[in-house]
Amino acid sequence: MSAPVRTAHPVCPVADLPPGGRKIVEIGGRSIGVFRLEDGRFYALRNRCPHRGAPLCEGRRMGLWTADRPYHRALERDGEILRCPWHGWEFDLTTGKSVFMPEGVRVKSYPVGVEKEPETSVENFDVSERAGMVVVWLGD
């Protein structure tokens, strides 16, 4: 009957996670990687590759290499693909879906946001952003 319970778990002050950065944290017994892209967007993924259990979030952020025909490579979405540090399985950082089988193989993705602390919640957006906490929401 009741709506799913979502709990916000603090990760770090937003200043500690600059654009392009990542933090790997332990929340509720789970290791979770929190990423901030260069344009400011936040994403969080479970730090465990569904293949062999590698610490996925220690992998490199890459772009999506594509080819519309053999030998003609193109790079899209630079920085939005996470490549597993062990066997190279690629995941979409923004959804947790694998590149090779998006619907069949994926890693858990969590919503991330910045919670402004009440005392610093002034009109100036930048100030409150800097003063806020990055939080990850975990479902029930």
């Binding site: 590698a54 610490p55 220690e58 992998g59 490199r60 490549r83 540090p85 062990w86 066997h87 190279g88």
Partner: peptide
């Protein structure tokens, strides 16, 4: 090679 320089990236 695979991974990073042939090794695990971590």
């Amino acid at each position: 090679n695979g991974g990073w320089k042939g090794a695990r990236a971590d």
